[in-house]
Design a binder for these strands. Sequence first.
DNA 1: GTTCCGCATGAATCGATAG
DNA 2: ACTATCGATTCATGCGGAA
Lengths: 294, 294
Amino acid sequence: MEVHTELFLGDCKVQLQNIPSNSVDLIVTSPPYADQRKNTYGGIHPDNYVEWFLPITEELLRVLKSTGTFILNIKEKVVESERSTYVLELILEMRKQGWFWTEEFIWHKKNSYPGKWPNRFRDSWERLLQFNKDKRFHMYQQEVMVPMGEWAKTRLKNLSSTDKIRDESKVGSGFGKNISNWLTRDKAYPTNVLHLATECNNKNHSAAFPEELPEWFIKLFTKEGDIVLDPFMGSGTTIFVGNRMKRNTIGIEILPEYYKMVKQQLPTTSLYLLEPLTEYEKTRPKRRSKIRGN
Amino acid sequence: MEVHTELFLGDCKVQLQNIPSNSVDLIVTSPPYADQRKNTYGGIHPDNYVEWFLPITEELLRVLKSTGTFILNIKEKVVESERSTYVLELILEMRKQGWFWTEEFIWHKKNSYPGKWPNRFRDSWERLLQFNKDKRFHMYQQEVMVPMGEWAKTRLKNLSSTDKIRDESKVGSGFGKNISNWLTRDKAYPTNVLHLATECNNKNHSAAFPEELPEWFIKLFTKEGDIVLDPFMGSGTTIFVGNRMKRNTIGIEILPEYYKMVKQQLPTTSLYLLEPLTEYEKTRPKRRSKIRGN
DNA sequence: GTTCCGCATGAATCGATAG
DNA sequence: ACTATCGATTCATGCGGAA
């Protein structure tokens, strides 16, 4: 299967306008956090964060298919010894836009930033907010099943004492049936907590999140040939992982350095370079329809 | 050290009025979740949850010392395939009351039962919201330190080979002193993710949390002789753990069954029974001042 | 070629100091 | 008074060089 990548250079609120409505299967992104990464992205003040982000989510809502999913990796920073509330406010405002807040996954960071403060411990988790356009969205749960590890050893042993009796005495009941299914199973469905390390030591490109993160959501919410979008591409983790997994990808990046870096690392056969368009060529129907696989 | 327990039977919004202002060091509680536990508590509809809870947090704000902490164990339920937003709204409203939202700990439930739904996975985490009345609150971080990872062994070995020599040659220097700090360090500060098993064996109560949960926060935020309050006492986990740790405890419970159950399990020497007061005896200054240790 | 060990480095946060 | 910058604090991870 041939897959393609579209790269846009520029402000994502603007560049998103080049993407057709109802065309994207999955959006996975990690926007610049409030007041974070000032040196590279300029930083958005916590007070203005929601206001800054809402026009973008409005466009994301437009480009997403009704069966698609939006995964937003975000975490509030501490301001004056208190957690900021802009993420909470963002969720409430996005629901007003029409998004469904389906779920909140937790990314439990194995190696969180060290430090000691008088009033708090190390922050070792981030939010992975799942938003949907419709309550009926695509989800391929079996793709992310995990080997039964500790759970089997500890839990099933306990079950054998109490519940297995019930299993025998109530054969055919829903409960008993479930138990016996699990006994023979070597894989289990995961939970909504992801336990991954941050990718900190790659000297060439410091990625915001580890490859396993977009990989997991791409497996869960798309199939081969689908379209994955990252409106804050950065070093391109989502793009590269998506390509490797035979998904078409679209990346938007405002910083030329990152844009060029990702461009150079992509296989030329799969790449469409989309520099900012001049006025008279604002639409590119052929290219885009080809990428969507029509 | 002699510690005492006060038990109140009744609606906690009402019973809290019997507790003096600025007297409690720590509040740890797990209120009935919206629409959950219908059989026992009747259940509060998600739409009315914030409205129902705010008068109670108002009272909690009053009774808490300025150096005290409020830990709220809560999780939004799923309503029509979407996460409810009442927890988000509650946080925003509590800040308007004057609470500081200091931190959000995550309780990652180790052994959550596998489950499968068409559009979501097993929910294996809950929020542990930390609120404070003042930005300067008591926190005894060293009480909850945990053993370091494997690498500690190797690092300590290395220090003895290389740096100890330096330590000998530079006796009295600041550098040598630092090394000896490293040598004695085998524990590290924890993060804001708690990895605990769910309590399975308490059949009498529908939603008890494991003893380690209140224990961890009682260690972290109080010292012996302090006052710990649980306004939704339930089966009394917080009360019993607090007593064992030599903290004075106050429990409020609306259901007579739980109230009696806890009462019977408490040592009679440490117990003050506070049945609902009749009008003419609304204050009990002597008893309470004794409990506060004045 | 394995295994072991040193080392730099993270979406951090606080409090003090400086403009 | 209010904002901006800086140093100190801290620990899991994986790379790269060494045994």
